[in-house]
């Protein structure tokens, strides 16, 4: 388990990093926390010609309040997000989810840019970016552009990033303070990849659900939004029957994989249970907040 030979370049600015990426012609790989990349190198699953280290680029790790949005630097470690007061206040659902990201040692090194670029379908941050309608800022030699999270995840470990692209910022539009939320996950052991997970953010208006977003992971090739289920519940009076219909829609929509740890059937069962629990919690929180 030793990596194949590669060149190494420590970039001191974003421009140098993307230039090195461009020079590598698709064979370069950016290394940030290395928590997924290093094992893949050691298994020789990846053979980049060059590793471009962005850890020494100044000012790539931050969580900033920017009016309507929170802006997060790509080199921000999971542990910083987990312990950020700003995140806890603006996105309590993200704050909660961060505690489920692997183990503390991994959270100390792993970065948001790395996690999103790696795009594991059972990882929390890709799902959170989808739930929170993140805008992903991407830079290459051709310039800078924004990719919406919903357009970013194309398949397992596959994103809309092109060869010369580097993810340079994550922007999260703020939620209303009264927005209800919930994050539910089942894994084999604490810190393992989710067998299934559901996150909900919900706004209520009296007995009515005025707005809802449901994110899921571990139940498909990418993290997913339960779009049909969201449509069923939006504008509806919150009721057991409405929740049941939502859960049915979720179970019908997912096409989970069978692997060593869980069958597709069990994952489908789980995602429904977790959705039920998450909906109840988010509803409760939104009602309590608006009282």
């Amino acid at each position: 388990m030793k990596p194949p030979p590669f060149d190494y370049f420590a970039a001191d600015c974003i421009e140098a990093a993307i230039q090195a990426l461009a020079d590598a012609g698709g064979d370069g790989k950016i290394i940030a926390g290395g928590q997924s990349l290093m094992p893949m190198l050691n298994f020789r699953l990846l053979r980049p010609s060059i590793l471009i280290d962005i850890n020494r680029i100044p000012d790539l790790a931050y969580v900033r309040d920017d009016g309507d949005e929170i802006r997060i630097g790509p080199l921000t470690r999971h542990r910083i997000l987990e312990t950020s007061d700003l995140i806890a206040k603006q996105f309590p659902v993200l704050h909660e989810a961060m505690g489920y990201v692997a183990h503390l040692a991994i959270r100390n090194r792993g970065t948001i840019g790395g996690s999103l670029s790696h795009a594991d379908p059972a990882a929390e941050l890709p799902m959170m970016s989808l739930l929170l309608d993140a805008r992903l800022e991407v830079q290459s030699n051709a310039g800078r552009r924004t990719i919406e999270a919903r357009d970013f995840f194309l398949g397992a470990l596959t994103t809309a990033l092109e060869d010369g692209d580097m993810l340079v910022e994550v922007r999260l539009p703020k939620l209303r303070e009264e927005t209800g939320w919930a994050f539910e996950e089942v894994a084999r052991r604490s810190g393992d990849f989710a067998l299934a997970s559901v996150a909900v953010i919900m706004d209520s208006d009296g007995d009515w659900v005025s707005d809802i977003r449901i994110g899921m992971m571990g139940v498909g090739e990418t993290p997913m939004r339960a779009t049909e289920a969201e449509n069923i519940l939006t504008g509806q009076r919150y009721s057991e029957a409405a929740v049941a219909a939502t859960v049915d829609a979720i179970r019908a929509a997912v096409e989970p994989n069978t692997d060593l740890h869980a069958s597709a059937d069990y994952r489908r069962h789980l995602v429904g249970i977790l959705a039920q629990q998450a909906l109840a919690k988010a509803w409760d929180r939104s009602r309590r907040a608006s009282r």
Binding site: S190, D192, L260
Partner: peptide
């Protein structure tokens, strides 16, 4: 430890061969 029908070990890392940790 799981071997598939072709005789390949499909629990060849500690992601798939899971052992209890302190929390379990």
């Amino acid at each position: 430890v799981v071997y598939n029908d072709e005789g390949q070990n499909v629990t060849a890392s500690l992601v798939d061969y899971i052992i209890p940790t302190a929390t379990e």
